[in-house]
Computed example of a mutant assay.
Amino acid sequence: MNDDIDLKQYIDNIPDFPKPGILFYDISSLMRNADAWQLATSRMAHAVMPWQPDQLAAIESRGFLTAAPLATRLGCGIIMLRKPGKLPGETVSLSYDLEYGSDSLHIQAEAIKPGQRVVVTDDLLATGGTLAASIALLRKAGANVVGASVMIELAGLRGRDKIDVPLHALLTYKD
């Protein structure tokens, strides 16, 4: 496996998905290539390791895909941040506004021990609303959120401006 590989060559750009005018950056093509996927998760783990997380918080649903190999590499657990009605037992929730409406995220009430070091993971950072809400929810549940890591950042949408923790983006698209 070559560490100099440009991982952007493994990201498919799908025009007009999920609706006209949107250019979708699809990590499925990256995940299908074993060497590229190993390199991507290795680079993300290397970036996250200095934050010494106790847990990774994965945002539904593609965040689950990025968190699982990272947790294995880092030797930590995974906390799922999910849509309403998807987690059993008592949950802590947070509702938030998006550019096209509102949404809410839930976490199991017993998922975090107070003060645990948590890094939030997801596949994509666009406008930042969901990632910012995830950080707020984790803090509400008692976490010490020490960073966030995403596979792709769409820098032109300025989502980074809404994030108040260190942020690592594996790949950045300027447009």
Rank of each mutant, 00 (worst) to 15 (best):
D3L: 15
D4P: 13
D6A: 11
L7W: 10
K8H: 05
K8R: 15
K8M: 12
Q9P: 00
Q9Y: 08
Q9W: 03
D12Y: 09
P18A: 09
K19W: 03
K19V: 05
P20W: 11
P20G: 14
P20M: 11
G21E: 09
G21K: 08
I22W: 13
L23T: 14
L23W: 10
Y25G: 07
D26M: 11
D26P: 07
S28T: 15
S28H: 10
L30C: 05
M31S: 07
A34W: 08
W37N: 06
Q38I: 04
A40V: 12
T41M: 12
T41Y: 04
M44K: 01
A45L: 07
A45N: 05
H46E: 12
M49G: 07
M49I: 04
P50G: 13
Q52N: 15
D54L: 07
L56V: 08
L56C: 07
L56K: 08
E60M: 08
E60I: 11
R62Q: 06
F64P: 00
L65F: 06
L65V: 15
T66E: 06
A68S: 12
A68P: 07
A71P: 04
L74W: 03
I78K: 01
I79A: 00
R82P: 03
K83T: 04
P84E: 09
G85C: 10
G89I: 01
S93K: 07
S93P: 05
S93A: 10
L94T: 08
S95C: 14
S95L: 14
S95R: 13
Y96A: 11
Y96V: 07
D97S: 13
S102N: 13
D103A: 14
S104I: 06
L105A: 01
L105S: 00
H106N: 01
A111H: 08
I112R: 00
K113E: 14
K113V: 14
P114V: 10
P114K: 06
D123Q: 09
L124H: 02
L125N: 05
A126H: 06
T127C: 00
G128R: 03
G128Y: 03
G128M: 02
L131M: 13
L131K: 12
S134R: 01
I135R: 06
R139K: 09
K140L: 10
A143M: 13
V145K: 04
V145H: 08
A148G: 04
S149G: 09
S149W: 09
V150G: 01
M151I: 15
A155N: 10
G156C: 06
R158T: 11
G159R: 00
K162W: 05
K162F: 04
K162N: 05
D164H: 05
D164W: 00
D164I: 07
V165T: 13
P166E: 14
L170I: 14
Y173G: 12
K174R: 15
D175Q: 15
